Simulated assay, not measured.
Amino acid sequence: MKFTIRQIADLINGKVEGDDTLEINQFYKIEEGKEGGISFLANPKYENFIYETDSSAVIVADSFAPQKSIKSSLIKVKDPYASFTLLLGEYEKLIKARKSGIEEPVYIAKDFKAAQDIYIGAFTSISSGVKVGKGCQIHSQVRIEENVQIGDNCVIHSGVKILKDTVIGDNCVIHAGAVIGCDGFGFAPQADGTYDTIPQLGNVTVGNNVSIGANSTIDRATMGSTVISDGVKIDNLVQIAHNVTIGKNTVIAAQTGVAGSTKIGAGCVVGGQVGFVGHIEIADGTKIGAQTGVNSSIKEKGTSIAGTPHDSLKRHLKSQVYLRKLPEIIRDIEAKTAE
């Protein structure tokens, strides 16, 4: 599909500087731009590429002032990253074919009633008591167990397993291979050194507008619910244990593990490979660096932490400077001791 720069600018409420009649047919990173493509510049460290790119158009901030000549037409907006994201979303709607109907073969329980405008892919299994809202896209080889409830306009990608009693809100996306509602890791040690399994009788509840990444797992609660609140975004390969609560609009990057009964607040940002011990509370707005080991509660809102065990970001960065200088410090101490 082709669109003029003027059409794109009108969509994202931007002001054009340059030729607005040129046609755009592809998206490119600014450093890889080609004629007929559109790119964006949001991070100043990439500014040098705007003077070299062959993209026909570049989305930039209102305040951007070129330091030298640019071949591309500019579309000036308040927030280049948000505008480019909007543009990608609108383009995806145009090119992505929306499926409908029920493919064969599938297994669907007799009491299941298909909602309006629903799609169910081949080799999917839907058990008794399941409710799925209108406009949902359930792709191939999905397993939905007893009494699961799924809201409107959800997309469940291939190979997802949604186990019994799980509740999912509206406009959620669950990516391939994710498992929602598996048993929590609950075992009681016995006097003879063995472990008895503790029944996991609760469920998982997922709010609206949640994204769950590929091959992530969210365990059902021992009792009550494991809660993923509205707007949460979970990356691939994330483990959420039983009775965890994730607050609204928190984002969690890949390979993070959250142990049982931990409560993470709203608006938190969690880097990749972060590990949380169980039974702690993380305040709203906490920012956690990659590979941090969080071993106690964070009580102050808006805190930034890093390191293992975790520390304030400022102290952690300062300690890293000292650590790199440690061999030099030791040599100085040994030299002075020798004197």
Rank of each mutant, 00 (worst) to 15 (best):
Met223Thr: 07
Ser304Ala: 15
Ala176Arg: 12
Gln291Trp: 11
Ile144Leu: 04
Gly224Phe: 06
Gly293Val: 06
Gln141Asn: 10
Pro199Asp: 06
Tyr51Met: 09
Lys71Cys: 02
Ile330Val: 07
Ile330Lys: 01
Leu88Arg: 01
Gly129Tyr: 11
Cys172Glu: 00
Ala122Ile: 02
Ser304Asn: 08
Leu22Phe: 09
Val155Thr: 14
Ile102Arg: 12
Lys71Val: 00
Asn153Arg: 10
Gln116Ser: 07
Asp20Thr: 15
Glu328Gly: 01
Met1Phe: 13
Ala221His: 14
Lys15Val: 05
His310Trp: 13
Ser296Ala: 11
Gly207Cys: 13
Lys29Asp: 00
Asn203Pro: 15
Gly177Pro: 09
Asn171Leu: 03
Val206Pro: 12
Ala115Trp: 13
Phe49Pro: 01
Thr226His: 03
Tyr322Glu: 13
Glu17Leu: 03
Leu94Ala: 10
Ile333Gly: 00
Ile333Arg: 04
Ala266Ile: 12
Ala115Glu: 15
Leu11Glu: 10
Leu87Lys: 15
Thr166Phe: 02
Ile50Gly: 08
Tyr91Lys: 01
Asn208Arg: 05
Gly302Ile: 06
Asp19Ser: 07
Val227Asn: 02
Val132Cys: 02
Ile240Gln: 01
Gln200Asp: 05
Lys314Trp: 13
Thr53Phe: 00
Val258Ile: 06
Gly184Ala: 09
Glu92Asp: 14
Ile24Tyr: 11
Asn203Thr: 10
Tyr46Ile: 12
Leu87Tyr: 15
Ser216Asn: 06
Ala178Gly: 04
Arg324Met: 11
Lys15Trp: 12
Ser73Trp: 03
Glu300Pro: 06
Asp284His: 03
Ala221Ile: 15
